[in-house]
């Protein structure tokens, strides 16, 4: 199938007079991992809840494999694996009991259900704790059990709400591996505040702002600017800095060596100024080193917020 596996089309959601989602559109295809970013209260959880079928939108529709979820919501939910922000677990049950229950209630029977439980137990390294009470598990194991239940029926779509919240660095790496493996043949959306996670995992990033989504490029791209660091030997630094500031006002310089007039120059620019700057530096002194990097994801998000403020 070539179309998107999950599509949110013109979705509106209101809480009282407040529009949380305004005409939101999002489509995710097979093999994609979409990172859903946004400030607290921006509607990330609401978006995932609507996609998972827990919450209903006020307007718009949710399509799974091209078919509208409503009114056959319970039927379509078989295709969706969902891990809410607060992992939904029954503490007095054992890990295997919990997974068996969810396999059965999702319609898997007998050997197929047992096989599905064994598969996720192994995939998430839970075999050693399958007989343990969920209430006695550590946070990392609880998160794994949550992920395991979401993948029990090998759903086409996986929705994860802050899946790595509160995990230690080791558990974080494990969780990322699990999500990456899970995404191979399905569509994944996950919400997070952690930029490194987005960079490490996602094929696409969207930022939820004012109830709608803005795409953020994951590819390093000079079209939105970056930072240039240069070391230069120059006797007329004031003249040089004046000329550079005409290119971009966001400039910092520091003298490194008093005797030889060596300076470090850092320039933040909103477009690709590498050519102009290197020409100025070569003309006005000896260029000792020249490094450039595009904006980090954090800076790109901040830039998006700055644009919104303006």
């Amino acid at each position: 199938m070539s179309g998107p596996l999950l599509e949110l089309r013109n979705v509106w959601k209101r809480f009282g007079r407040y529009d949380v989602l305004k005409d939101l559109n999002l489509s995710v295809g097979k093999g994609e991992i979409v990172g859903l970013l946004g400030p607290n209260g921006s509607g990330k959880t609401t978006t995932l809840r609507i996609a998972a079928g827990y919450s209903w939108s006020d307007e718009g529709e949710v399509l799974i494999s091209g078919e509208s979820v409503y009114p056959n919501a319970p039927l379509s939910r078989s295709d969706v694996g969902y891990l809410p922000e607060k992992v939904p677990l029954y503490d007095p049950l054992r890990v295997s009991e919990y997974l068996k229950f969810l396999a059965s209630v999702r319609g898997l029977r007998g050997q197929i259900a047992k096989g599905a439980v064994q598969r996720v137990l192994q995939a998430f390294n839970l075999s050693a704790v399958e007989g343990r009470l969920i209430g006695h598990l550590s946070k990392g194991f609880r998160q794994r059990v949550g992920l395991a239940q979401a993948l029990l029926t090998q759903p086409k779509i996986l929705l994860l709400d802050e899946p790595t919240n509160g995990l230690d660095p080791g558990q974080l790496v494990e969780a990322r591996d699990m999500i990456r493996r899970a995404s191979e043949d399905r569509a994944v959306i996950f919400s997070t505040h952690i930029m490194q996670e987005v960079s490490a995992l996602c094929t696409r990033v969207v930022y939820l702002l004012d109830g709608n989504l803005r795409s953020i490029s994951l590819v390093s791209d000079w079209s939105i600017g970056g930072t240039i660091k240069a070391r230069v030997r120059c006797n007329t630094i004031d003249t040089l800095l004046t000329q550079i500031s005409q290119l971009s006002p966001d400039i910092r310089s520091e003298r490194i060596d008093q005797g030889e007039n060596i300076f470090d120059i850092v320039l933040d620019c909103s477009s690709d100024l590498r050519g102009e700057l290197s020409a100025l530096l070569v003309t006005n002194g000896d260029l000792l080193s020249f490094q450039s990097e595009t904006l980090s994801l954090e800076r790109r998000v901040l830039k998006l917020l700055d644009e919104k403020e303006k």
């Binding site: 809840r49 079928g53 319970p74 969706v80 809410p84 992992v87 939904p88 969810l102 999702r106 239940q149």
Partner: peptide, 14 residues
């Protein structure tokens, strides 16, 4: 309270 209602209501049951 345990957030399991959110799980149950996203399962294929009415």
């Amino acid at each position: 309270q345990n957030n399991t209602l959110e799980l149950l209501m996203t399962l294929p049951i009415s």
